[in-house]
């Protein structure tokens, strides 16, 4: 899946987690802008992992702070 298709799918998956309807850009942060707590992160990561059949390890998660970095990581992890 290319970056555009991956981004579209992630946009779909994040919608139910984006409770405040924050407008998403590549610079939107999960902790700050989206106010994800650790439980939300866990559920959201599990959704992404299952949708793309990938593993986003805790080590990889530590490097992902914003929306754009997530899309890049998922593109890369799909190989």
């Amino acid at each position: 899946m290319d970056r555009a298709a991956t981004a579209a799918k992630i946009a779909e998956l994040i919608a139910p987690f984006n409770k405040k309807g924050v407008e998403l850009t590549d610079a939107s942060t999960f902790a700050g802008d989206l106010e994800f707590d650790s439980l939300t992160v866990m559920d959201f990561v599990a959704e992404i992992e299952d949708a793309f059949d990938i593993i986003i390890s805790m080590n990889a998660q530590a490097e992902i702070e914003n929306y754009g970095q997530l899309i890049d990581a998922v593109v890369k992890l799909q190989g």
């Binding site: 593993i55 390890s57 080590n59």
Partner: peptide, 20 residues
Amino acid sequence: EVVPFKHNDIEAMDKRLGRI
């Protein structure tokens, strides 16, 4: 590489092991 799964969720564990 640390990969957590949902508490006591056998299927979630199975899937993650399968992706290693």
